[in-house]
Amino acid sequence: MHYALCLMLFMVGLYGVMVKRNLIKIIISLIIMESAVNVFIVMVGYRKDGIAPIMNKAMEAETFVRSSVDPLPQALVLTAIVIGLGVTAMTVAIAMRLYERYGTYDIKEIRKLKG
């Protein structure tokens, strides 16, 4: 169920990228897609009533393995967010330059290249 919602969010983003005509809306759709994948990665490591994946001396290794959430997806999602930020910054920078040149955010009017 949760995974289906995640896929739906992903599809919303994909729809936006393909259909929207405004640069800013396309960028927002890209961010939605990224977030959908990030949410999915976090959910992969989720465990009901899980504890933080920090092991202290008082804890048995076995209880730790049984009850802690998976720490790896959390590390991955941090990296993915940072990469996503880099890409978004790049996109926004190019969109700003495009606005300087063309004076519009409408991709129908930004057409010097023929397909």
Partner: peptide, 23 residues
């Protein structure tokens, strides 16, 4: 700039698909 934006959008969609596959 126009080409780069086009490339960037499709490239990020591709990266997101790959990341989804990896997840």
């Amino acid at each position: 700039l126009e080409a780069s934006f086009k490339y960037l959008v499709l490239g990020s969609v591709a990266s997101t698909l790959i990341l989804f596959g990896i997840a």
